[in-house]
Computed example of a mutant assay.
Amino acid sequence: MTRLILFIASFISIQCQSQTNSANDKKNRQEAIIKEHVYDCADKINYTVMMKEYQDCLDAGLKKDSTIAYLWQQKAMPYFKAKKYSVGMPLVDKAVQYDEKKWLDYRAFIKCIFAKTYKEAIVDFETCIKKFGNSYVQDHTYAFYIGLSYLQLNEFEKAETVFKTDIEDQSKRFGEGHYLDLFYYGISKYEQQKWEEAIIEFDKSLKQYPEFSDVQYYKAICLARLGKKEESSLLLVKAKKDATSGYTINEDNAVYETYPYKVRRW
């Protein structure tokens, strides 16, 4: 009996080691493909003017291993920046298929900020929260994007609830909510004509980012609706000056997409 137990234990150990070695071999092989076809090929090409050559690099890598999620994501990325969402989305779907944990939140972000398919974005982000917790993508929580999506769907009460909960969580962890979360939380109240409550959140945002012109603009509207015309006019003058100086929503991807409620005309 003892020999049998030892034999079984030894067999299991060998099997586990074999599986580990196989996984390591696959990882090393895929990393080599990524190096050859992304870092040493696609990354050296300006896809804005040489899209075919860029895509050819990645396609050559996928011929060697079509299960490398990063190659699919890299194929999708420039199409999103070119606003070709229908071309890019099936590619990023492939990335999610082969590595959901890595790329599901990225796809959800793309749906929210780029493709603007807000209902689908909410579904993806809620799945992310269920599976991985309320983590971060592109510097903001999953809940942030859910709230933003509800704003864009005109479901303002839902947006307010989501932002309120998320900001409370951020405050517990970091001492305060992010100024962009506070801005959109204020917007959720603004859209419900809760002028005083909106101003409270706008002021919290401005405390962190005093020159935030978009916040100043919406706060000025709230002041006007409350009959504070002179204060509103002075704030609008400052907002326009700060906007001219570039103090607006400065997210990395704002160069490709206009974020909701950004003031585009002054």
Rank of each mutant, 00 (worst) to 15 (best):
L234Q: 09
K44R: 05
I129S: 07
A143M: 04
G246T: 08
F212D: 11
L235Y: 01
K189T: 04
F125A: 02
I187K: 01
E120L: 10
A159G: 04
S232R: 00
Y184K: 04
D139H: 12
C128A: 04
V237P: 02
D166K: 04
V87P: 13
D252N: 08
I199T: 11
G246M: 12
N134T: 10
Q97A: 11
I129G: 06
V96Q: 15
S135Q: 13
Y261D: 10
T248C: 07
V263I: 03
Y54R: 00
H37K: 04
R107D: 02
K238P: 01
K83E: 09
Y142T: 11
V92H: 08
V96G: 15
K194I: 06
I8A: 12
E191G: 02
W72Q: 09
Q170N: 14
K84E: 15
G61I: 03
F132Q: 14
R29Y: 07
S245D: 14
F11R: 07
L235K: 01
D65P: 03
R264M: 06
Y85D: 06
Y247E: 08
E196D: 12
I167N: 06
Y118I: 05
N154P: 03
P210S: 13
S171L: 07
A243N: 14
I146K: 02
Y98N: 04
A95Q: 00
Q30A: 08
K81I: 05
Q17L: 15
N154Y: 04
P210L: 10
I199R: 12
K52P: 00
Q55E: 15
T165E: 15
A121E: 09
A69D: 03
Y70G: 07
S10N: 12
C112L: 13
A121H: 06
S171M: 11
L236K: 07
S135P: 05
L236R: 07
T2Y: 09
L235T: 00
R225N: 05
N250W: 05
V38S: 11
T258L: 11
Y118P: 02
S86N: 13
Q152Y: 00
Y179K: 04
C41M: 06
E53S: 02
G147L: 02
D242K: 12
Q170D: 15
T67Y: 01
K44H: 08
Q193H: 05
